[in-house]
Design a protein around this nucleic acid. Structure first.
Lengths: 165, 165
DNA sequence: CGACTGGCTTGCATTTAGCAAGTCTAGCCG
DNA sequence: CGGCTAGACTTGCTAAATGCAAGCCAGTCG
């Protein structure tokens, strides 16, 4: 495992990087925060190999970042990977990466850039901060992302699986 | 290269993760932000293999996150790797990781946890936020980290290499 | 009953990472 | 002046991790 040896070092940054810094993990969590839950959907969206996706999902479940929830799809048992609270709380990391990436890296070909929208007031705002439009704290349930290279429609962030579910 | 294929995808998170999410990179940047500049020092602090360190430093220089500055040490030419502005700006990512790691991961053996101190008022504060003690914005030059498993002394964050240097 | 789909596991081939040892430059020591 | 040492790397080789392709199994559709 790539960065896993670091998972129990004394530095919290080292531990977080040891788990989240493995290849694909941050991308999986990004998509999970945007509502992806199924194995196939992750595979299709990320272009990740099956065995690695399987491995990563297992590790994230083990780490308590995702939960595996069986559900029924027309009578058939299927699995869903839902965010836990810990998974939902990687959001600040994603925000920080989004800001840094927007500022310091360039896409291969110019595309409209990602935007975070405060659904309550409808304004575009800086990721991870108080709303630029209305000055209020942007709550997770009120936050949506626009990723114009995929679709012009905003995507509201997924809510974590509640303890009872 | 581990995550490098992602460096020019349209999503800024993907691009940032493609560069910063490579193994060791976040740890190198963490230490660089704490003042490490020399090859040997990174090697000793991280326990990273020479060839990989060499490779990562080269990639970070290429990405504009670090600059290689030759300097004189008693008449001998040495290299120093200094943060650029882009390198200094990964700080929010480190803050987010520190908070998440502190909250959702456990060290192998209990140690005093990492603390961020606002030097101006001397208070411990939450990483990446307005000072919990005095309510003012914590500027980078006023921020110090205490990492008690290494030393009880606070370490003031390194300032990036100025354009002229 | 055969095909199909979602969610995986298995088997290699290819990349990376990790370790050890070697190189090169340049002071410093006696 | 010859040998020694230190910093900053390369080079070679082994051990993991990644990627691709194929296979499997349960259930549902036609």
């Amino acid at each position: 495992m790539t960065t896993a040896p670091q998972v129990s070092v004394p530095c919290p940054i080292g531990r977080a990087a040891g788990l989240l810094g493995e290849r694909w993990t941050l991308l999986i969590l990004r998509n999970a925060n945007l509502g992806t839950t199924r194995f196939d959907a992750f595979r299709a969206e990320l272009g990740i190999a099956d065995n690695i996706l399987s491995n990563r999902l297992a590790r994230l479940v083990e780490a308590g970042v995702l939960v595996r929830v069986p559900y029924h799809d027309g009578g058939r048992a299927r699995q869903e990977y839902r965010l836990t609270t810990a998974g939902a709380e990687v959001l600040p990391v994603l925000h920080a990466l989004a800001v840094w990436g927007e500022e310091h890296t360039k896409p291969a070909e110019p595309t409209g850039s990602m935007q975070v929208i405060h659904q309550r007031c409808g304004q575009v705002t800086t990721p991870g901060k108080v709303c630029d439009g209305c000055g209020e704290l942007v709550r997770r349930e009120e936050e949506a992302w626009v990723r114009p290279w995929l679709s012009p429609d905003p995507i509201i962030l997924a809510s974590p699986a509640t303890a009872g579910t």
